[in-house]
Amino acid sequence: MLNDSVIDRILAHLPRCTIGVLGDLFLDRYLDIDSHLNEPSLETGLTAYQVVRIRSYAGAAGTVINNLAALGTGRILPISFIGDDGEGYELRQALARWANVDGRHILITAERRTPTYTKPMLDGRELNRLDIKNRTPTPPLLEEKLCEKLQECWHEADAWLVLDQVSEADCGVVTGRVRELLAQLASQDPTKFVLADSRERIGLFRHVSLKPNERECRRACGAGQETPIEHCVEQLVRSGGRTVFCTQGEAGILLGEEQEGRVRLQRVAAYPVTGPIDPVGAGDSCSAGIVSAVLAGGNRAAAAAFGNLIASITIQQIGVTGTATPQQVRQRWQIVK
């Protein structure tokens, strides 16, 4: 599936590509705590943790953007919204680190908060996370602006990645209305590669390729653990109409494609990793790898393999949602090929 020339072709082609990213932007904020500096609170008697460093990164769709940028994508075109708040300012700063991210189509609104995952890290160990999310429906006017942006930018991008991160229905960027427009545009432009990832609603996407994990795949099909995952992938292929990349961690990717009226399933192995791992963001880095390989002319199996290769790099980066540079990709490939 992969060889030296395929790897070189993918990495050489990416700087000529424009990739659109439609979805929920979160701020990932890490609070590094030094336990040696703990103080008792005079008011409550509880331990007051002392934060010695704050690290802020673009998360959710931002993790996809970070990975595309690190791989050397020529231009990245995000469509999203964030709040007119301090977290939104931090998020814009995080995205501004990448010269190849075109942030003109990120809407800033006082009607929403910037979704934020705050992760206290006590001596490198993550404590209970603190979440800020929007739990009311996205205002119709904001939906309309998102749809306008998607229509405006559709033909500018060579491919699209879609990330539906918010669990609550219609409370994020990819609402039912936005998803319907996406299906319409994708059906009218079937040669454009579109890859959708959704925590709760992967089965509602049409005319695009899908990247669920095993839990999301089963949920979309209403299947329990006793149902073979192969049956669920086949069902998603038939209902969604395009390729399904079902990620299964160390088992790799179960790839489903319709060919001549039949669904063909293929197992694409993961690459072995030793030592401690941090799987946070692995799926997003895999998505970035998949779309990068497809744009370079790779078949879907090669794209799945390249996605697995990128994920095998990022999961070894502990305490942060990792990325992979072209140099890291080449080094990792020399180890696992």
Rank of each mutant, 00 (worst) to 15 (best):
R53N: 15
S35M: 05
D34L: 12
Y49T: 10
I310L: 11
E200I: 06
E200N: 14
I315D: 01
N134K: 01
I82P: 09
T325V: 03
V174Y: 04
Q93C: 11
M121E: 08
Q248K: 10
N213K: 03
V6I: 13
G283D: 03
A324G: 11
L150M: 14
N100K: 08
F81R: 05
G86V: 08
I33E: 05
T138N: 06
L182P: 06
Q165L: 11
Y30T: 12
Q184F: 04
W98Y: 15
E39F: 07
L150F: 10
I76F: 05
V233T: 03
R267V: 03
A157H: 03
A61P: 12
I277S: 06
G261V: 07
L68G: 14
H231G: 05
T175C: 04
S35H: 11
D284T: 10
R55M: 09
D24N: 09
S209C: 11
H231S: 15
I10R: 04
R16E: 14
P272F: 04
G289V: 07
T18S: 14
D278K: 12
N66Y: 12
D131A: 08
G307W: 01
P326K: 10
N3L: 06
C17A: 15
I313R: 02
V162S: 09
T44D: 01
A99G: 07
E43P: 00
L142I: 05
L122M: 07
A169M: 05
A69M: 10
L122F: 11
V194H: 06
D84T: 07
E200G: 05
S312K: 04
V101G: 02
Q334P: 08
P137C: 07
E90H: 14
A99R: 15
P279L: 04
T325I: 04
A60R: 04
H231D: 15
L163P: 03
C171M: 03
L295H: 03
A69Y: 12
Y49H: 15
A293H: 04
E214G: 03
Q93A: 13
G275W: 02
R267C: 00
S80H: 11
V263K: 05
T63A: 15
N134P: 04
A69I: 12
A110W: 00
R177D: 02
L255T: 01
D189Y: 11
Y30Q: 12
K149N: 15
S80N: 06
E257A: 03
P139Q: 01
L146D: 01
P212D: 02
A61L: 09
C217W: 04
G256R: 01
